[in-house]
């Protein structure tokens, strides 16, 4: 109760860890999925019947 926060690195590490983890994880998933996605120009010829949404 002296007006400043002592310690607290745990919260900092948690916030940065979660933020980097989620952003990087999402980026990797998108990089993977969009690589296998057909290029937009000739996409119509690469249709996958019954592709899951």
């Amino acid at each position: 109760m002296n007006g400043t926060i002592e310690g607290g690195w745990g919260y900092v590490i948690a916030v940065y860890g979660i933020s980097w983890g989620v952003l990087l994880g999402y980026a990797v998933v998108l990089l993977f999925q969009s690589r296998s996605a057909p290029a937009q120009a000739d996409g119509t010829t690469h249709s996958q019947p019954g592709s899951t949404t």
């Binding site: 109760m1 002296n2 007006g3 400043t4 926060i5 002592e6």
Partner: peptide, 11 residues
């Protein structure tokens, strides 16, 4: 309850 660490006069 115990006050948060940042609690002080004038806050």
């Amino acid at each position: 309850s115990a006050p948060p660490q940042m609690f002080r006069e004038g806050i």
